[in-house]
Structures are given as structure tokens and as C-alpha cells.
Simulated scan of single mutants.
Amino acid sequence: MLSNANPVHPQGPDDKIFKNRSITFHGGDHEAVLTLSYPEPDEIVDWTHDGAVNVNDQFKPPLSINFNFTGHFWQGVFGQVGLDVDLLRNKPGAPDWNSLADLVVTLREK
């Protein structure tokens, strides 16, 4: 089977130091903590305040991290991989997300 993919593997963040990071999301009487472990990024945009986000306030996306690849990425195209942490708010009047199944239904509709 023929393939246009170059056999050269991408040179990415393999040799970079890993960072461990937690973001706490506060909202009403609830709190959730997201813990991440990732190689040192090439670019980071961090809008969290002391590692915490109040979900009821106006906010920018809490965190965006990007990694540049210096080798062949996909099908020989140089590229960037990123991770964005954002918030999805439940629409007013919509049923509450009381379970993972409720949240999955909303995400699939988006």
C-alpha cells in the first residue's frame, strides 16, 4: 500500500522538562480541579489568577498551550499541536448537568 507520509518522525517536545499544573474552577457551592502534566510549551497564554477560575465571572479562556514541531508532522507538513482549556456554560433554562451522560449530550449537540 502506498503512502505519502514521510518516514521521518517529528521532532517535538520529547526532550523538554515536564510541567505539572492544576487549575481550580470555582462556581457556587461546587469546585473542580483540572490537573495537567505537559512538556514545556513553545507558547503559553495563561489567564488564570493564582491557578483559579471563578466560572461566574467574565473571563478569557483560562489556558492555551502550543507546541511547535521542527520535523515532518502529518503528511510532511510542519505544524503545531495545542491544548486549549476553556469553559462551556449551560444555557439559561436548560436542564442541569447532573451526570456525565447529561454533559455528553450537550457536548454532542455543540
Score class of each variant (00 low, 15 high):
Q58N: 04
E40W: 14
L88Q: 09
Y38D: 13
E43C: 07
D42Q: 03
G93P: 11
A52C: 06
S64G: 02
H72R: 06
T48F: 03
G76V: 05
T48K: 02
N56K: 11
V85D: 02
D46A: 02
Q58Y: 11
L63V: 02
Q58I: 11
N54S: 07
N56M: 08
V33A: 13
A94F: 08
V33H: 09
V77I: 08
L36C: 12
P62H: 01
H72P: 12
D42L: 01
V85E: 03
D42I: 13
F67G: 03
K60M: 08
H49N: 15
Y38C: 10
D46W: 11
P39D: 09
V55P: 01
A94H: 14
F73Q: 08
K91G: 03
L36Q: 14
L63W: 00
F69T: 09
L87W: 08
V53R: 04
D42R: 06
L34S: 09
P41D: 06
V55D: 01
L87A: 07
F78K: 14
L87Y: 05
S64H: 09
V33G: 13
G51V: 09
L34I: 13
G82M: 01
D84T: 14
S37Q: 14
L34F: 10
G51I: 01
V53T: 04
G79C: 05
V55S: 04
G71R: 06
L34E: 07
F73R: 04
G71Q: 14
D42T: 08
F78T: 12
I65R: 00
L36T: 15
V45M: 07
Q58L: 12
A32V: 15
F59E: 12
F73N: 14
Q58V: 11
P41K: 04
V45W: 01
V53E: 03
L36R: 03
D42M: 03
N54D: 05
F78H: 15
D42S: 12
N56R: 07
V77N: 09
K91C: 02
D46S: 03
N66C: 06
T48Q: 05
P62I: 00
Y38K: 12
A52K: 15
D84K: 13
L34V: 15
V53F: 00
V55G: 07
L63D: 01
F69M: 00
H72K: 14
D46Q: 15
N54A: 02
G76S: 10
T35K: 14
